[in-house]
Design a protein around this nucleic acid. Structure first.
Length: 272
DNA sequence: CACCAGGCTGTCT
DNA sequence: AGACAGCATGGT
């Protein structure tokens, strides 16, 4: 299957810290979401994919006119212009909420390669086996299925295991569907009732899975880049940065966050 | 090997 | 109520 994409950058979108279950094989990215496995590759303005229908691709990768317009609007902020031009086509994804919750519980005191490992091991330990292109792969387990604390620990999750184990008993897919319909502030507050979920993780779930585009997750990388670009290197509290983002970018704060994060991480890695 | 990561808990105003 | 120090874990 083929889809025309005018402003989209698959590689930067997949590797910008919002998605973890993928594997690059040649030109293809094999991507997982819950029980779905599909492959996707980009050649200029053509996106090729197999294994899911087009609506799945446009939803997951945020390929909407609305997002394109929002990012264009952010160029009214002169500070963001070079970042948006450099990573033109970077999108905020819309992932499965349950899988997003577990991946960001894993993100506590961690890093992207390790989160990817945790998610793969959890799928191997608790998910059903699926075969794609002759390769053995694993679906991600449903809410309720990650129910063995020592097995969760064996997935290199450490002290996060009890958070995942407890949340597994507290949520359902229907719970997240209800949150999608609520306002950002209310969804954010409800998420923080879950173990291993405070301001930052709740904002990641709001932004990457519940469609709350005003959510502005602040981790150490956002703290650093905001200090550099907006606070003249002064130390500022995370709460103040969230307020600042709300004032400055409103409903588009989440898109701003994604460009800031990807830019500062690649700068650190020396990628140009 | 020192260093790097967010949330939870207990303690102090 | 709100601020803050100390803890837990695995990879580089």
């Amino acid at each position: 299957m083929r889809l025309a994409v005018s402003t989209f950058d698959l590689a930067n979108t997949i590797t910008s810290g919002q998605f973890f279950r993928f594997q690059k094989v040649g030109e293809w990215y094999y991507c997982h979401e819950r029980d779905k496995c599909f492959k996707v590759c980009q050649q200029e303005s053509a996106l090729f994919f197999e294994g899911v229908d087009e609506s799945h691709i446009t939803r997951l990768f945020g390929l909407t006119k609305q997002q394109e317009k929002s990012i264009e609007l952010l160029k009214q902020d002169p500070t963001l212009i070079p970042l948006i031009n450099k990573y033109k086509g970077l999108r905020v994804m819309q992932r499965d909420p349950w899988e997003t919750l577990v991946s960001f519980q894993c993100s506590i005191m961690s890093n992207i390669p390790k989160i990817r490992k945790n998610m793969e091991l959890l799928a191997q330990a608790f998910g059903k086996e699926i075969v794609v292109d002759g390769q053995k792969r694993h679906a991600f387990p449903n809410p309720g299925d990650i129910n063995d604390l020592s097995k969760i620990k064996a997935c290199a999750t450490g002290f996060r295991a009890r958070y995942i184990h407890a949340a597994n008993r507290m949520v359902t897919d229907a719970f997240f569907e209800k949150l999608k319909k609520k306002k950002y502030e209310e969804a954010h507050e409800k998420l923080m009732d879950l173990p291993g979920v405070a301001e930052k993780v709740a904002d990641c779930i709001c932004l990457f899975a519940l469609g709350k585009t005003e959510a502005f997750p602040v981790d150490v990388w956002i703290e650093r880049v905001m200090q550099e670009l907006y606070f003249n290197e002064e130390r500022v509290k995370h709460d103040h940065m969230r307020e600042f983002a709300k004032e400055r970018w409103g409903k588009n704060a989440g898109y701003a966050q994604q460009y800031l994060y990807h830019w500062v991480r690649n700068k650190q890695k020396g990628i140009d």
